[in-house]
Design a protein around this nucleic acid. Structure first.
Lengths: 154, 154
DNA sequence: GAGGTTGTGTCAGTTTCCTGACACGCCTAA
DNA sequence: TTAGGCGTGTCAGGAAACTGACACAACCTC
């Protein structure tokens, strides 16, 4: 097709989205045979690492809204992958726990995702990975240190 | 809230998604006052850099499906930001062009987005940025060099 | 203690995007 | 010439996500 010489991929922002998109596509590809979506997997992984997380906390961790995470949690609870107390032990927060079934389901999904991540890092040295870690964290911090307006340090 | 010591952000994949998510949120924030979405902006930016792109090519460039891009293009055409020939000059491909109105609309959006990207790179040296560029491209290549299965080079 | 702020779970409505499928036109090779 | 593969534009249908709004509980401040 049209392959003009202009390079939009000069932009680190575009490249970032491209990488993230490629990663998500690769994850979807390996999770689909397991009957899982990326959000689905993210939720389970978060619960494995931090049991008792609330709906809102899970939502933030999986980059979706509370509402979206709630419908997902209802489905996961219905299918026996997670459990939530009928009544909140304190406040309105319903701490969610993984069931053995959920843990088993996560196990294979986690292995598949880890393989994808390993493939992504193919060709990168340990040093590269450490640099990527630092750089990405710096980007996140700079973007979130909001001040949406024009403010450029001293 | 619950701030247990387990660190999920050890994963570069998670960090990548986090960064991409933060970037998108920041872009949405500055584009909203201009009445634009990220996909909206991406489409215009692509057309500015590569005039005459087809619907499908725009879709790939903006990381959405042809169908989604098509409805967006119809809206942009209705509002006078882009033009497409009524009939395909060759094949079925409808090459899209930016109108002066579209170019003007893009100009301020582009400035806003560029500011966001500059903010993202705050605190990173030129060397860091060059490294980020190389690393991200390596990740993208490794992920796309598909072979979805288990294959780990020599 | 009173009042404001923040965070949470939930309900409703809507928008957005994707999956699936079809017909058409170019291109290459037999 | 004649198939076959490939890319494209387009038509539904459905699934996933979001925005907006409400009531309640914990926390902090005065």
């Amino acid at each position: 097709m049209s392959q003009d010489g202009v390079d939009l991929p000069t932009s680190l922002g575009y490249l970032l989205k491209e990488a993230s998109s490629a990663l998500r596509a690769a994850m979807e590809e390996v999770l689909r045979p397991l009957g899982m979506t990326v959000t689905h997997y993210s939720c389970l992984e978060l619960l494995a690492q931090r049991p008792g997380l609330s709906n809102s906390e899970l939502a933030r961790g999986a980059f979706v809204t509370r509402q979206s995470m709630n419908v997902l949690l209802q489905a996961l609870e219905r299918d026996g992958y997670v459990v939530r107390p009928a009544q909140a032990p304190v406040g309105k927060v319903l701490p969610t726990q993984l069931t053995p079934s959920g843990r088993a389901s996560l196990k294979e999904a986690s292995a598949a995702v880890r393989a994808v991540e390993r493939r992504m890092l193919t060709g990168l040295t340990e040093t590269d990975q450490a640099r990527a870690f630092t750089i990405l964290q710096s980007m996140i911090h700079s973007l979130r240190d909001d001040n949406g307006g024009t403010e450029v340090s001293v």
